[in-house]
Simulated scan of single mutants.
Amino acid sequence: MSIISTTAPEDAEGDVAAIYAKDERDLGYVASHTRAMSVNPEAYLAWEQLVRAIVSQLGMRRYELVTLAAAQGTHSEHCRLAHGRKTLPLIEEDQLERVARDYHDADLSEAEVAMMEYAERIGRDAYAMTDADSLRLRELGFTDREIVDITLAAAARNYFSRAIQALAVDVDVPPGLSDRLRGALLAPL
C-alpha cells in the first residue's frame, strides 16, 4: 500500500476530476495507479499526450504488444493486467493468453516477436543494448520512425511501471479478465 495520499473520487476537482472520470468511463472505477499518478495531474496529462503521440504512428496493436513486453521486462503486474485488458479488443483471448505466457509461441509474426523482444530488453537491460538490437528490427522491415516509436513506447512503459512500483501502488485487477488470462498475465515473469 502506497504512503501517498490521493484525492478521493468524490473530492476530485479540475484536471484530477477529468482524469478520474476517464477511468470511471473505461473501467467503472478509478484505478490505484491513476490516483497515485494524479497527485501531479500536469505530469499525468503530459504522459497521456506522449502515449497518444506514439500510438498515432505505431498503431494500437503494436503499442499494446510493446507495452506488454516492456511490462514483462520491468516485472510490472500493474501494467501487464491493465494492458492485458486493453489488448482484449485487439487480439482474441486465447491468443492473448499465449502472448502473456510466451509471445514466442503465440502465432505472432516474426516482426511482432522481434518487436516484443526488443521492448522487453528495454525494460530489462537497456544499458547493454547496441545497434545490433535495432538492426534486427530494420532487417524485418521496420522504418526508422517505427523503431523510434517502439523504443519510445517501451521506454514510456518503463517510466510509468517503475514510478508506480517505486510508490508501492496497489495492483488492481481490472474487470473483464478471465481467470485464465489473469493467471497468464500474472505468471512469474
Rank of each mutant, 00 (worst) to 15 (best):
S5A: 13
M1V: 12
L58Y: 05
L189V: 11
Y63G: 00
H83Y: 14
L50R: 03
M60F: 01
R162G: 00
R98Q: 13
V66P: 06
P89F: 01
E97K: 10
D131W: 01
Y63A: 01
A100D: 08
G123R: 12
L189I: 04
Q95L: 08
A166E: 07
E77F: 10
E112Y: 03
F160H: 08
I164M: 15
A70S: 12
I122E: 10
E110M: 08
R61D: 05
S2F: 08
I19R: 12
E110C: 06
R121I: 12
S161L: 03
I91Q: 08
R157L: 03
Y159Q: 00
G14L: 01
D102L: 11
D149Q: 14
W47S: 00
L58R: 04
V99M: 05
A12L: 03
I164Q: 13
A69S: 06
E92I: 07
Y127L: 04
P89Y: 01
G28A: 04
P175C: 04
R80F: 03
S2R: 04
E110S: 15
S134P: 03
Q72K: 14
L135T: 12
S38F: 02
I19V: 12
D102Y: 14
Q57R: 11
G73A: 05
S32Q: 14
Y44I: 06
S38A: 15
A46Y: 06
S161Y: 03
A163V: 14
V51F: 11
L68R: 06
G176H: 06
R121N: 07
A70K: 03
R85F: 02
E117C: 07
E77D: 15
D94W: 03
H104E: 06
I150Y: 06
L88T: 08
A46T: 15
I147M: 11
E10W: 02
M129Y: 11
R61Y: 13
T130V: 09
R162A: 00
A36C: 14
L58F: 07
E93N: 03
V55H: 01
R61Q: 08
G183C: 01
M129C: 11
K86Q: 08
A53K: 02
A18D: 15
E24Q: 15
D133F: 12
A69Y: 07
E24T: 11
M129E: 13
R98M: 08
E42W: 00
L108W: 11
R61H: 13
V113P: 12
M129S: 14
E112D: 15
L96S: 03
D107P: 05
E13Q: 15
V66W: 02
P89E: 01
A106N: 09
A187L: 10
M60N: 08
V55I: 14
A128P: 01
V66E: 09
A53T: 04
D179E: 15
D107M: 09
P188Q: 12
